[in-house]
């Protein structure tokens, strides 16, 4: 993997502008003998207007990558940019503002404040910022996600799928540069999960949003434009216009032949 080929960033596609990028992104936990590298000098570009999935087995560093790109976690080495802003080295206050104004989040569960209604949850980031939501846009998001008749409900009165749709709407409502979502379908049944993925797809296609999704579900990754495969803290492969079957196949290969430094099987690196 330390061949010259990996010096070029995965996901690079010069035709489209970059929403976020990382160079030499390294994240280490612990120190000395017990150091664990969660991310090992990762270079990545996230294209604007695309739906990017990040896949990998547990412990591959996919969530850490997302957290570092989103400014939720600090990096040990390397640089991260959101648009033209370098976010490595920003203080907590600036990071908070950046997350609030330029990034949308959707987690696996517990996305909503139980005390606020669906509508209040959706506009929360803008309320916190003291900005007036763009009414027409929010309406469009709400209608796209089919939440019109659920706006006055509290999270406890919504189903899991509905809750994730509200979370999705919240992530979209402020029209952020980038939406990060971590296993958004992890807690949902397959029908509700498919619905949420369809909405994310819709957000990219019709609402021209940029979405980065961390998942270990090949079916979910099949909805993306591009899948990045992570293993042991490095990006080991990419797949454009994936299908669930192709992703599943790729994952099988991974689990059958776990990459070892310097000795990854050829087919792992083969482009699809």
């Amino acid at each position: 993997m330390s061949t010259p080929a990996t010096a070029r960033a995965y996901g690079t596609e010069p035709a489209r502008p970059v929403a976020a990028r990382a160079r030499g992104l390294t994240k280490a936990y612990g120190s000395g003998e017990t150091t664990v590298l969660a991310l090992d000098s990762v270079d990545v570009d996230i294209m604007r207007g695309a739906f990017t999935a990040v896949m990998g087995p547990s412990g591959s560093g996919k969530s850490t990558l997302m957290h570092c790109l989103a400014g939720l976690d600090t990096v040990s080495a390397g640089q991260v940019w959101l648009g033209d802003t370098e976010i490595t080295g920003l203080r907590d206050r600036e990071l908070t503002r950046l997350r609030r104004d330029r990034i949308g989040f959707m987690f696996q569960s517990f996305n909503l404040l139980p005390t606020l209604t669906a509508a209040e949850n959706i506009t929360l980031p803008m309320d916190i910022a003291g900005r007036t939501p763009d009414g027409a846009w929010v309406d469009r998001v709400i209608d796209t996600l089919g939440l019109r008749d659920r706006l006055g409900h509290r999270p406890a009165q919504l189903s899991g799928g509905q809750q994730q749709r509200v979370a999705c709407a919240r992530a979209l409502a402020s029209r952020p540069e980038l939406i990060f979502t971590d296993e958004p379908t992890g807690n949902l049944d397959s029908r509700a999960g498919a619905e949420v993925l369809a909405f994310l797809r819709e957000a990219v296609d019709s609402l021209e949003q940029t979405v980065v999704m961390v998942t270990h579900d090949p079916g979910a990754a099949g909805h993306a434009d591009l899948v990045l495969f992570l293993g042991d803290g490095r990006i080991v492969d990419r797949m454009e216009r994936p299908t669930a079957e192709a992703v599943l196949e790729r994952m099988r290969l991974f689990s059958g032949a776990r990459p070892s430094p310097g000795g990854a099987p050829d087919d792992v690196l083969r482009k699809s």
Partner: peptide, 16 residues
């Protein structure tokens, strides 16, 4: 705790 984490993630500042 989780709620606070969520709020912080979506941009609630420490002061707020």
């Amino acid at each position: 705790t989780r709620e606070i984490g969520l709020l912080r993630a979506i941009g609630l500042s420490r002061v707020q």
